[in-house]
Design a protein around this nucleic acid. Structure first.
Lengths: 195, 195, 195, 195
DNA sequence: TGATAATCGAGACGGTACGTCCTGTCTTTCA
DNA sequence: TGAAAGACAGGACGTACCGTCTCGATTATCA
C-alpha cells in the first residue's frame, strides 16, 4: 500500500487540457504573448489548477514539449550505416521545416522559452535531434566505430547550434548548407568533398 | 537652409542616461524582468521620452549593445597568422567569460532579447565575435588563403552556435572544448591533430 | 502661485463616472456583492484609477453618499415651529421610504458599508436626518428654546437608532410608530398626549 | 446498542468545534475577514462538513450567538422593582463593555453579520438585552403595571438603537448618557429630573 | 523679441495579466 | 459510511506595467 494520501486526485482531464491549450497557444500567438490566464480559459480550467501543478508557463511548455503534445515532429531518419548521408537527410528535413515562417516563429518562441527555463532548451534539443536523444546516441555510436573524428557532444552542439543560430537570426537555411555542415563536422576522413 | 525645424532638440543627456540605465538593468535583473518604467525611473527620464525615440525595450537594448554601453567585452585576439591558434584563444576567452554565472546569466538574457528582436541577435553575435564582424572577416580571409576547408559563414555559425547552445542549456564550457571545436570546424587539413 | 505640481491632473470624468457607477451598483446588487472590478468596468475606467484615488470600495460609497450621488433623498420638512409635528412628518416619510423593499435593501447594504467604514455611518445619518445635519440642528434649537427635555444628541441617536434597528431586523415600520416614537423622545412636557 | 448502523456517526465534536472556531475567528479577525475555509481549518473539519450543516458563515455565527459560544456576556441585572434604576444599571454595563475597543470591534463585526443575515441581528439584540429577550419582557411588564408610558417595543428599539448607533459610528459612550437615555424613554412620569 | 513648436520630467489614463485567496461542489481515502 | 483531505471551475483581489495622453516648464528657431 502506498503513502496514505486522502482527498481527490489530480484530474487527468484538466492536466491534458492544459498541455493541449498551451501547445495550441504557443503555436498561435508565441511563447511570450501566451498568458497563463489565456491557457486557463482555453483549457476550461481554473487558474489555480494551473498554479497547483506548474510553477510557470515555461514549465507547462517544457512538459508539453516532453510529452510530445507540442512540436511532435520527428526528424530522425533510418540508420543506413552511412552517418554522413543520415545526418544530411536529417538536417535537410529540419531545414525544410524551418522554411515555413510559422514553424520558424514557433522555434524562435521556444528558444524564448529556453531562456526562461533551461529544461525547455533540453527538451527542444531532443525534439530537434529526435526523441530520446537519438542524435547524440547515433553520434556516439559513430565515434565508437571510428567513423567520427570529433567529440560527439561537441559535434551535436555544432549541428544543433547552427540550426539555433539560423532560427535566432532569422537567416535562410538553404539545403546546400546541410551537406556542407555535415561535411564540416565529420571531417575530411569521412570522404566529404572539399568544394 | 534645409528642413525648417523649430523647437527644442533631442537631449543627449536623456539619450545616454536611458542607454546606461538599460544596460545596468539588463545586467542586474535580466532582459525579461526589466521594464520600460524601470528604465525611465532609473534614468530620471519621462516614459514618453523613451517612447519618442525607441519603439520597444529590445530596441533600447539593441542600441546599447551596438554602442558598446552594454556588454563591452572584446574577445578578439591578434592575428598571428595561425588561424587555429587564434580561434582557440578566442574561444577560450569566451568560455572563461561564461564561467562567471553572472556573465552567463547576462548572455541568456540577451538571447531572450534576440528572441524578441533579431537585431539583438546580430549585435550579440558581433560582440561575441568581436566588433565589426571580425570573426567572419578572419574566416573569410582564411578561406580565401586556402587555410579553411569549409564555408566561412557555416564555420562561424558552428562556432557561435556551440557557444549559444552552452549558454542556453547552461552546460559547462571546459577549456578543452575550445581546441576540440576549432579542430572540428577547421578539419584535419589545417594541420591540427584531432586530439 | 500654488505648489509646483507637474504632470497630468486628475480626470473629473473618471472621478464622477466611478461615483455614479458605484451608486448604481450599490442600488442594484448591494454593497457586499458590488466589486471594485465591477465598478471599474461599469465606469469604463481602469482598476488602477480607482485604487489611485480611493482606498476601498467603502471609501467610494462614502464619497458617493457625501456628494449626494447615491441616496439623494431628502426627508427634511419645513420648520413649522411645532417640533413634534415636524419630527413626526419626517419620520413618517422615512418610514414610507423604507416600506419599499428595494429601499430597505439599499439601507441594509449601506449599514454594511458603515461596518466597513465609520464615515459611511456618519454620511448615512446625515442623509437620513437630511443634509447638513439638520436633524441635530433642529433638535439643538428646540433644546435651546426649552421645547426639548432631553440631550439633543441622545434624542437624535434614539430617533435614528430606531430607524436603524428596524432596517437591521427587517421589522415593519407602521406610520403609527412615528408619532409614538416622537412622543417618547419629546416627553409629556411637549404637550402631546402619550396616546 | 440501538439500530444496527455501521460506519461513523454524525460528529457532535465537529459541530461544536466549528462553532468554537467561528467564535474565536469573529473575535480575532472580524466577521467579514473570517472565511469558511479558515473556520474549517481551525476546527480541524472538512469544508464539506460545514456546508452540510450550515448554509453560510452568517448561519454559523448566528448559531454561535444563539448557543452562547460567541459573545456570552450577560448584561442583565436583577429586578429591583425600580425599572429606571435597573435599565440604567444595564445600559451602564453595556457601555462599560463597549469602551474596550476589542469589544466594540466585535460588535461592529456582528452588525456586519446582521446585515448579511437578519437572524444575527435578532440574536445580537437578545444578547445585548440579555438572554431570552428579557429586556422586552421587563418593559412589557412595566407597561402592564403602568410604570412605562411608551410602547415597550419602541422603547426597546430606542434603547438598543442608541447602542447600535454608538457602535456603528464608533462614538463614545459616557456613563452619563445611560441615565439620560433611560430618563428620555421612561418619560416625565417616572420621576426623571428635567436637567 | 515675441510667437511657434518641439522637447523634457512627471504622472494620470484605460487596459491586461499577474499570482493569491476564497467560494461552493465534487472525489477519494480512511477509520 | 460519514468525515477529513483536497482538487476542481470560477471569480475578485490588489499590484505591476503597458503604451497613450496631458500637463507645465524649458529650449530653440523663425518671423
Amino acid at each position: 500500500m502506498p503513502e496514505g494520501r486522502r482527498g481527490a486526485v489530480r484530474s487527468t482531464a484538466a492536466h491534458t487540457a492544459v498541455l493541449r491549450a498551451a501547445a495550441e497557444l504557443v503555436e498561435r500567438v508565441g511563447f511570450e504573448r501566451m498568458t497563463i490566464e489565456g491557457i486557463a480559459q482555453a483549457a476550461g480550467v481554473g487558474k489555480q489548477t494551473i498554479y497547483r501543478w506548474w510553477s510557470s508557463k515555461s514549465a507547462i511548455v517544457a512538459e508539453a514539449l516532453f510529452e510530445g503534445v507540442l512540436f511532435p515532429e520527428s526528424f530522425l531518419t533510418a540508420d543506413t550505416g552511412d552517418i554522413a548521408a543520415d545526418l544530411t537527410t536529417w538536417l535537410e528535413s529540419v531545414f525544410r521545416y524551418l522554411r515555413d515562417p510559422a514553424h520558424a516563429g514557433l522555434l524562435v518562441s521556444l528558444i524564448g522559452g529556453a531562456v526562461a527555463d533551461a529544461e525547455i532548451g533540453l527538451r527542444l534539443t531532443e525534439r530537434l535531434g529526435a526523441a530520446p536523444s537519438s542524435l547524440l546516441l547515433r553520434l556516439e555510436q559513430a565515434a565508437a566505430d571510428g567513423r567520427l573524428a570529433g567529440d560527439p557532444r561537441i559535434v551535436a552542439d555544432a549541428l544543433i547550434g547552427v540550426i539555433v543560430m539560423r532560427i535566432l537570426t532569422r537567416a535562410p537555411v538553404p539545403d546546400a548548407d546541410a551537406a556542407a555542415l555535415v561535411a564540416l563536422v565529420l571531417g575530411a576522413g569521412s570522404g566529404r568533398p572539399t568544394y
